[in-house]
Simulated scan of single mutants.
Amino acid sequence: MKIVFMGTPDFAVPCLRTLAESGHEIAAVFTQPDKPKGRGYKLIPTPVKAAAEEYGIPVYQPLSLRKGDDAEEAMKTLRDIAPELIVVTAYGQILPKEVLELPKHGCVNIHASLLPKYRGAAPINWVILNGEKETGVTSMQMSEGLDTGDMLIKKSTEIGENETYEELYARLSDMGGEVLAETIKAIESGDLHPEVQDDSLSCYSPMIRKEMSALDFSKSAADIHNTIRGVTGFAMLEGKRLKVFRSELSDKKYPNAENGAVVDTKSFAVKCGDGGAVIFREVQPEGKKRMNTEDFLRGKKLTEGEILS
């Protein structure tokens, strides 16, 4: 098949590699424009663009597929290529109806959740924030709605009790490539069995906001733990910002301690609103590097009862 791939972040790279090594003709890659980074604001290619260049695949980076000169030029390019299939993984743009209807086999999206749950932009964060025990990857036939198309192939996985967003992101990224390979094989063999999504079972995963990382110690230990795992937490310790990247739940209860109080100076356990405690395992003090708690405590003496806000 002649295929066009659309994707942008490193999450999408395993899917592109799956296609590039599948024997199919990958006629083009569409990705978001390069963005300036660092002190010199040097333009950095997207991870998908960098991977496409490894394989010598032509890359297009329109600002929009829906309006303006860029959209018209992109549409002309797609018509000239005449792909039989378009594969989309975390592209970052909404495809217009004209693009969705162009390929013979339509447009297939690889989405990092078990649809219809967690439609939207940040499903990996939200399954952790909500304390889900299971998630996965779904391929779907794209429609004009937001992640509402017919489901094609699903693959599920358990979420570890202490697994972080970064760890789950990497696992689901690889799983996306596996689901895509199965989907392509089923398209070729004519063995696809699309399943309509039950909208009554759906939920939405909106974009993550920076303020969501603030740790509110009046909440339960599980909520604090899930915030740290899902978006990276932060609190104020002695007037300075402390980021928390990894944590565990304590098996002890501290009913008489104040919320936010350090209740164990050796493990860095902090009391939460339900009487439980969360143990910080990896932190980054303001102005310093990310480190495990053991290294942090070698240079910082905590006082039992001191409060994190």
Score class of each variant (00 low, 15 high):
265 T>P: 03
274 D>V: 04
280 F>Q: 09
249 L>Q: 03
279 I>Y: 13
251 D>Q: 14
233 G>W: 10
278 V>N: 02
249 L>I: 07
243 K>M: 15
277 A>V: 07
279 I>T: 12
259 N>M: 11
243 K>D: 15
280 F>W: 11
232 T>A: 12
245 F>D: 00
267 S>M: 15
222 A>F: 03
287 G>D: 12
292 N>A: 00
255 P>C: 07
257 A>T: 14
223 D>P: 08
243 K>H: 08
225 H>I: 09
251 D>C: 07
283 V>T: 00
218 S>W: 04
257 A>D: 14
240 K>L: 00
260 G>Y: 06
269 A>V: 04
285 P>K: 00
217 F>Q: 08
258 E>H: 13
242 L>D: 01
288 K>F: 02
234 F>Y: 15
244 V>E: 03
246 R>D: 08
230 G>A: 15
290 R>C: 09
218 S>V: 02
256 N>C: 10
236 M>G: 02
270 V>E: 11
216 D>N: 15
263 V>R: 10
243 K>R: 13
235 A>V: 04
226 N>H: 08
240 K>G: 06
290 R>K: 15
252 K>Y: 07
253 K>I: 03
279 I>W: 09
224 I>H: 03
257 A>M: 14
286 E>N: 01
291 M>K: 13
233 G>P: 02
272 C>N: 05
219 K>L: 02
270 V>M: 12
278 V>Q: 00
276 G>Y: 06
220 S>M: 06
236 M>C: 00
225 H>L: 14
264 D>E: 13
220 S>R: 10
231 V>Y: 14
219 K>C: 07
258 E>K: 15
289 K>G: 00
261 A>H: 09
246 R>E: 13
236 M>Y: 08
265 T>Y: 00
253 K>S: 14
292 N>K: 07
259 N>K: 10
250 S>H: 12
264 D>Q: 06
222 A>Y: 05
239 G>L: 12
270 V>R: 05
283 V>C: 09
288 K>Y: 08
294 E>Q: 12
225 H>D: 11
229 R>E: 13
249 L>K: 05
229 R>L: 14
235 A>E: 04
222 A>G: 04
278 V>S: 12
216 D>S: 02
240 K>R: 11
235 A>F: 03
269 A>Q: 02
267 S>W: 05
267 S>Q: 12
266 K>I: 00
260 G>R: 08
228 I>A: 08
272 C>P: 01
